[in-house]
Amino acid sequence: MNPQPEIVLVDDEEMVLTSVSALLMLETECNVHTFLSPAEAIRHLETHPVDLVVSDYLMPQMNGIQLLAKSKELQPEAARVLLTGHADKGSAIQAINAVGLYHYLEKPWENAQLLMIVNSAVERTQLLRQVQAMISDLDNAHDSLKDIQTRLIKAFL
């Protein structure tokens, strides 16, 4: 019914990308796009609607919070999850409120927990999109009602 969920996964370590995408391929219906560089991930986000962005924190050119902030700007409804190493915990937590994280996970992560977060994040984004669509349908309906109303009124004047 829903289109295949789209996930963007960003980590500067190839092995993390491989491990997480293998898990998601096995256990979900999601289409996973992996990126070693935040800049490339942003380029993808500029042109493709996605349901969820999962990002590492410490990366060379740009940290995960900066990336997720950019993602929020480009696609506010896409859920954002930070997957961080232990050492960056403090600084990461401080920045969490700034970008409105859906969830925060520490490495090593539990696959069962990651799956739960991914599934509920995707579901939330898709619901959000449906609600948005319904609201704009309502708006349209409202507009045409108004239209009819004005025409009716005109007809009687």
Binding site: E13, M15, V16, T18, S19, V20, A22, L23, L26, E27, G85, H86, A87, K107, P108, W109, N111
Partner: peptide, 28 residues
């Protein structure tokens, strides 16, 4: 130690996850 731990943490996380995925796959 802090440096070494940070360095080991990611590979361990990856191995842990892979072990789990392999177990799930074998079951399948």
């Amino acid at each position: 130690a802090a440096g070494v731990i940070h360095e080991i943490n990611t590979p361990i996380a990856s191995i842990f996850s892979n072990i789990d995925v392999m177990e799930r796959s074998l079951e399948a």
